[in-house]
Amino acid sequence: MRSIALLCLTFFMPPLLAQNDLLAELEGMEEKKVEYVTAAFKGTKIINGQSSEIPGPGVLQFVFQHRFGSLSDDFFYNFLGLDNAQVRLGIDYSFNDWINVGVGRSSFEKTYDGFVKAKLLRQCTGSKNVPLSLTLFTSAFINTLKFRGDLDPDMVNRMSYSTQLVISRKFNSRLSLAATPTLLHVNMVPETQQNNTVLAIGMGGRYKLTQRLSLNLEYFPQLQKNNYSEGSGTSEFYNSLSVGFDIETGGHVFQLFFSNSRGVIDPQFIAESPGSWTDGDVYFGFNISRVFTLKKPDLPTYN
């Protein structure tokens, strides 16, 4: 009797489950692949500091970084700070999916820079599980401001360097966080009170509010005090604190933010931020990026 019931079951069950069976069979056939986590951040920068992202392989990126004058400095007289704007223009190119090289020029102290950014380890799931990404960024800067009517013949004195390791993790589709140990070295500082070498640990993150809008926060505490002379005494440089939004529109990413750092490049914004949020020394700024695909990948053709 029981076997008849069993028989009935086997006869009547298959048609009901059949479609799921085939889909389940397909699921079982699927090979487990390495799935790299993508789009942890919308831009290659969180705000001032680097994110874990680089443009895709064969993609040229143009970045326009703009910093207005201080909100506390005759804000309306200076046309919302526009009259004192500082700008960095940069281009970078990704040769493959892990190495990116770029150059830039910022208006403050007429500084040129060159950098290499490499994804050393990529967060992934699937057949390989890596919980975080490691991205190395290293950059050299040269100040080309004329000194007593001409360029300093000793160019080495005008060089400064930045090396950062971006340790980041995309926790879910909304939240990504990064810790960025940073080593800065300035060959010649303007004042004896200032450190030639500065260590800082950047902390940053983004939280996606909607698909195309995210809230970004960034803080770069320096590990030792860095002073500058002011009047008869000395003042301490502040740690850089920035908050802003990423807005994405197809090929562009607009990053709009407020920061107590005016400088665009690492030695300036990490080690030389004279203003504090509490004194209203806050600057509005934006980064705009636009990408151009120079080398298109070969798409598979019909077989």
């Binding site: 479609q19 889909l23 397909l26 789009a39 895709g56 993609v59 698909q211 994405e248 990408v291 695909t293």
Partner: peptide, 25 residues
């Protein structure tokens, strides 16, 4: 019976950013 299954992340685009937006947004 017929069944198909394809991973969405397997779509390859000519533009990397497009592929990212396709998956992400």
């Amino acid at each position: 019976q017929v069944a198909f299954r394809l991973p969405i992340k397997g779509f390859q685009f000519e533009k990397a950013l497009m592929q990212e937006h396709f998956n992400e947004n």
